[in-house]
Each structure stands twice: as structure tokens, then as C-alpha cells.
Design a protein around this nucleic acid. Structure first.
Lengths: 149, 149
DNA sequence: GTGGGCGCGTGGACGATATCGACAGGCACA
DNA sequence: TGTGCCTGTCGATATCGTCCACGCGCCCAC
């Protein structure tokens, strides 16, 4: 994991479809060399994969919210993530320190869908919830590939 | 935006480097046809781009936190996102309804870095902060491409 | 009914790219 | 001074992206 690797990672975060040829020219290495490095970065788990970035609005998911979650029975075994993983509306699930146990980020289309999602979360995971609705998203999913430029 | 488009989007979210040839076979269309559709999806902004997914730990960013932010002077003009956009540690910035004005997601390497980041946020944006540290991440950045399977 | 325009998909051809193997240089270590 | 390892270059080949011409079905005007 040297500077060249960091440079590669940065470039691929910016453009995941960049060809190895272009990548090589960009960082001053042959096509094969960058190819080998990318493969090793994937093997080591540094690069987890490549994915398309989709506009949630275009999919009709115009309402984003954070839901803080706390078990109703603190003594019960904690398998909240397991119980929530089938709810496709739940995009992120973080276990956190603090008053609540988990923070979820969810995306739905309408307030009505949010309401029924909350009901499902409460019953499926046996938790109480505190919801914060997102009004706008100044920026999101920025990634510093460790190389500032 | 029909079922075929949704299918394409789903496939590209799962694997952003899938070749047009494979994509065509997968959804039962010729290479050229999927190529045209993907281009239009990009033009329409449904597909915002392609990026590599990086393991933050591999970059030495092992500490994630949410920071809720509230202006010290509620009467001051609200340009918090502008003031924070240069802090590369801030990955997401959401304007939210509720007691606080913004929720930030940040990634740093150490508690010490979090401390100095908080100081910078407070002075740069003239806000008070409430920080929730992430202990673990059961899942993150899931994407429903609208096609359940 | 007929003809034109249009959106969408197909198939082929060409150049570019990914991918693999063989080989060369630098470096640490014995 | 070898020896092994890592890393990069180079070249060959199959595959892929990209572009173009064509065909089909649909809608609408006349």
C-alpha cells in the first residue's frame, strides 16, 4: 500500500470504469503493472468492488431519514441487524455508542411509506425509534482516496 | 424507465464493471441495445457514474462518527455546507428536520483526529456539535435497484 | 388504406482493451 | 557472488466497446 496504490484507488473512486490503459498513463505505469496492482488491491480487500452510483430520486426514493433505534427490552439478545437486513429500505445500519443502540439510514418514496416502514422496524426488531427526516443533501458519499488532489 | 432499465440499473449497482456483452446476455438484449440504454440512463442522470468501493479500514480510517450540528447563532446566515465542504473527513452532509440542523458522517483514523476535527468544525462553521461514535457497521451502502432479486 | 417519420433493437466490422505468459532489473539476504 | 522475490515491461491473442447501416413495429396525417 504505497503512494502508487493510493493514487490508483483515488482514480478508481473518481471513475470506476477507467480503463487500465488510461489508468496506466495517468499514474505513469504500464497497463499490465496497474492491472496487477488492482488485482492485488482487490485480493487484499482494499477495493471491495465497483458499483454504479444511482440517483435515488430517479428511482422514486425521494425521502431519506435517519432512524435511531433502541431495544424495548434491554435484556433481550441483540440481533437487530439480522432482523432488519431483509428490509430493503434500510440502506445503512450502524451500531453506535450513546443513548440509542443503532442508527439506520433509510430511503422511501413517501411519508406514508416511511410510516409503514417504521411500524415494520418496531415490530420486526422490537425496538423503539426516533426518526430524523432529511430535508436536503448538500453532499453525500464523498470519498477521500487519501490523495488530496 | 421501464423494467429493462431497472434491471440494468440493478445489475450495474451490483457490478459496475460488468461488460456490455455480459449485461446484454443477462437481460436478454444485444450488446448495442444495452449500450444505448446505459448511455441514456447516464444522460438522464439516473446513473450518476461509476466508482470503486474502498474499505475505509484499509485506508486507515477506522473510526466513523455522526456529528449533529446546530448553529451557535440561529440568526446568522446558514452556509454550513459551504464551510464544511473542504474538510475531507466529512463524507456526508444532510440538512435535517429536528432539533439540530445538519447531520454529518465523518471518518478519521483515531480519537485524537476526531477531537481536532470537531474543533475545526466548530470554529469553521460556528456551530455546536453532538457526536455519536460508530462501534461497528453491520451493513452499509446497500442499494435496492428497485428490482428485489 | 397508405405512406412517412420515429423509437428501438439487431448484426457486423473495426479499433481499442483486457488478459496472460515470458522475461528483465533491483534489492535483501546468506 | 549467488539466490529468490518482488515488480515492472513487452508482446500476443481473445474479448470487448463503439459505430454504422438496416429492419421492424407503431402512431399519425392525409
Amino acid at each position: 500500500m504505497d503512494d502508487i496504490d493510493r493514487h490508483i484507488v483515488t482514480a478508481l473512486v473518481a471513475d470506476g470504469r477507467m480503463s487500465y490503459t488510461d489508468l496506466g498513463k495517468l499514474i505513469g505505469l504500464s497497463t499490465s503493472a496497474v492491472h496487477q496492482r488492482v488485482q492485488k488491491l482487490e485480493e487484499r480487500g482494499v477495493l471491495r468492488g465497483f458499483r454504479a452510483v444511482v440517483d435515488p430520486e430517479a428511482l422514486g426514493l425521494s425521502l431519506t431519514a435517519f432512524i435511531s433505534v433502541k431495544p424495548i427490552d434491554p435484556a433481550a439478545p441483540d440481533d437487530v441487524p439480522d432482523r432488519l437486513k431483509d428490509l430493503v429500505e434500510v440502506e445503512d445500519c450502524y451500531s453506535v455508542a450513546g443513548d440509542e443502540n443503532y442508527i439506520l439510514k433509510v430511503r422511501v418514496g413517501t411519508p406514508g411509506e416511511l410510516e409503514s416502514l417504521l411500524a415494520r422496524i418496531r415490530t420486526d426488531a422490537e425496538v423503539s425509534t426516533r426518526t430524523t427526516v432529511v430535508l436536503s443533501t448538500p453532499f453525500e458519499a464523498r470519498m477521500r482516496g487519501t490523495t488530496p488532489a
